[in-house]
Nucleic acid binder design. Structure first.
Lengths: 158, 158
DNA sequence: AACAAAAAAAGAATATCATTCTACATACTG
DNA sequence: CAGTATGTAGAATGATATTCTTTTTTTGTT
């Protein structure tokens, strides 16, 4: 199911806004920001996690620090259609593959890939993509510069 | 500059791996995992932040909880080339726009967008995109299902 | 409107944690 | 070989997370 059966109020929004910006903020600081007791914040966060509103807390690491500076998007045409997700799963299993999206229109996937350089991209396509037999063709788009990246969700204002 | 002048060792990798999975883990827990003192972990994390290896700590929020279930990628052809980033900035300023990438090959941008539904997407293109005069044309790809999403970086094994 | 039931928040108490400081070990440098 | 710099451990303290109890607020029902 896509929808979540849980009503968020203004306090929840405020908490989410703070956590989205800085997941390592203390409950005490959140409590001060929203004007409530730390214990109440803890309860709310627990509930937000349990209800599936908060999925994870993650550190965003600089790709350059791990020598993964080349970003590419690859359209992939595959022989299997929707539901038969063998290609998607095979793509998802590749470490360099950041995202895999099943897209509408032409039995294809859109894949986001990070490699060290163009040689790494070539190697990836030769070594990993070529081993997935259902792939018919690929079209690669190189990212020159990311203007805005992995933006967080827009949370309704108080 | 793209590269980072900082050498990471196995302990740093272990810390990054833990923080990437759960940014709200305590320094004490990290210390237990890697077999070091909490004070040492704190120092290392501070340095990783200061050196720009760790960019941010973020809570990943379920888009469905905020009623943003439709994901789309839009290729945008614009009149300005590389460097003249007016179009990119205008796109980045749109709240629904999650990512903006300047791509090679055809003076264009690849944009990732989240809206509530197809009506929201239509409204976005009518109200926001249409107001950017440098946009020549757009090609939209609807995501049916995300197989793998916003994967974190692959950190070298110990 | 009044009451009961349920949910949420505050407040206090305790265990845990972050942070600072000092001391020590290790590696690098002249 | 001294001297410097870097990094870690360990202890101390101040802050925090977490639990539990009490109080308040909300909700639903008559």
């Amino acid at each position: 199911m896509n929808t979540i059966e849980y009503n968020l109020d203004q306090t929840d929004y405020a908490i989410l806004r703070l956590l989205q910006e800085n997941a390592r903020i203390s409950n005490a600081d959140i409590a001060r920001e929203v004007g409530m007791a730390p214990s109440a914040i803890l309860e709310r966060i627990k509930k937000l996690e349990q209800k599936g509103v908060i999925l994870q807390y993650r550190a965003k690491i600089n790709p350059a620090a791990l020598d993964q500076t080349l970003l590419s998007f690859i359209f992939i045409r595959a022989a299997d259609g929707i539901g038969c997700a063998a290609t998607g799963k095979a793509l998802a299993a590749i470490p360099e593959v950041q995202e895999v999206h099943d897209i509408a229109g032409d039995d294809g996937y859109l894949v986001k890939v990070r490699t060290a350089d163009s040689a790494g991209l070539v190697a990836l396509m030769r070594d990993s993509f070529a081993k997935i037999p259902s792939i018919i063709s690929t079209r690669t788009t190189i990212v020159l510069e990311t203007v805005k990246e992995e933006q967080q969700l827009v949370i309704p204002e108080g």
